[in-house]
Design a protein around this nucleic acid. Structure first.
Ligand SMILES: [Mn+2]
Ligand SMILES: [Mn+2]
Length: 296
DNA sequence: GCGGCGA
DNA sequence: TCGCCGCAACGCGAC
DNA sequence: GTCGCG
């Protein structure tokens, strides 16, 4: 079958192939979901290199990350050349239009992952992420509490603006749009200092220990995604888990009412206003934040 | 999903 | 002509 | 240098 979108017709092969056994969610349903969310999703992922997390045989069989763009692509799929530093260059896909998003679904790309920088300044991130990873047996309420504390800290004390999304797994992501004036190393150092300050204030809630067996049942404040060439799951992406949970942007008041981190799915999603719509205009400089953080 | 490669 | 295979990579800190 | 981590 074919899907028509953005002035293109995209072939969906094996449309009835079941990618998510529970609930028999097919490739066609995945493609239609992405067609539906494209208007909200594209502005948030435009001009960022993507890695594809693909599952040609469904989520029960393993999947793989694909970073390099295939040699031959439809003309509507845009690509960019990125430096791999010492190891030359690589061509990567940009998901800049709805047709590309649907084409990715046909490639069995369940979850696009994006860079935290844009192609015109790949070394300079315009987003900073805090990844809140709770231990296996910790309720959602602690994660919500942690995210709200982090938000309060970022916005009230560091004068930044914070956005939150579910991950479709157990934790949440807190995303901070930043002015493009520092490289990844400096931004990560800032994130680390912030994570350490929060851990010292709330030692029973947070940890920044990389080692799992040293986390003591606390929420891991993971800042290591803030690096060159690192990726994070795209907002609105579907996760390769039974039920097809999605990484859904929420308002802070929606977060307070969240019942579980995988509460929203490809099927339960309904069109609404985008809580992240203002992200691209909510950019703040890290400069005053750095100054304030240093005084603590 | 698809190209490459060894049989 | 087939079946099989690969399809990312980075940085930090602990050892 | 290698391993755990995501
Ligand atoms: Mn996480
Ligand atoms: Mn993490």
């Amino acid at each position: 079958m074919k899907l028509r979108a953005g002035g293109h017709s995209i072939e969906i092969t094996h449309a009835d192939k079941v990618l998510f056994p529970k609930g028999k969610i097919t490739k066609e349903e995945l493609a239609r979901y992405y067609a539906k969310v494209a208007r909200l999703m594209i502005p948030l992922i435009k001009d960022r290199p993507i890695s594809m997390k693909r599952y040609p045989k469904g989520i029960k069989q393993g999947g793989f990350f694909q970073k390099n763009a295939p040699e031959t692509l439809p003309s509507f799929v845009k690509t960019t050349s990125v430096s791999r530093k010492e190891k030359g260059a690589a061509r990567m896909i940009l998901c800049n239009n709805v047709a590309t998003l649907i084409w990715l679904a046909n490639q069995n790309c369940i979850a696009p992952h994006i860079w935290l920088s844009r192609i015109d300044k790949p070394d300079i991130p315009d987003r900073l992420i805090f990844d809140l990873d709770p231990p296996a047996r910790k309720g959602i309420s602690a994660v919500i509490e942690g995210a709200l504390i982090l938000r309060q800290f970022l916005e009230k004390e560091l004068k930044l603006k914070a956005f939150v999304n579910t991950t479709g797994s157990r934790g949440v992501h807190v995303m901070v749009p930043i002015k493009r004036e520092y490289g990844f190393k400096e931004v990560r150092a800032f994130a680390k200092a912030a994570a350490e300050e929060l851990t010292s204030r709330h030692p029973k809630l947070f940890t920044h220990e990389v080692r799992k067996n040293k986390r003591g049942g606390k929420i891991y404040l993971d800042i290591m995604r803030n690096g060159y060439g690192q990726t994070v799951v795209a907002p609105f992406a579907v996760r390769p888990k039974e039920g097809a949970p999605i990484a859904l942007p929420l308002s802070w008041s929606q977060l307070k009412k969240l019942s579980s981190a995988d509460a929203f799915t490809l099927r339960s999603f309904s069109m609404r206003t985008n809580p992240w719509a203002g992200m691209n205009r909510a950019v703040h400089s890290l400069k005053p934040a750095l100054k304030n953080l240093h005084k603590m």
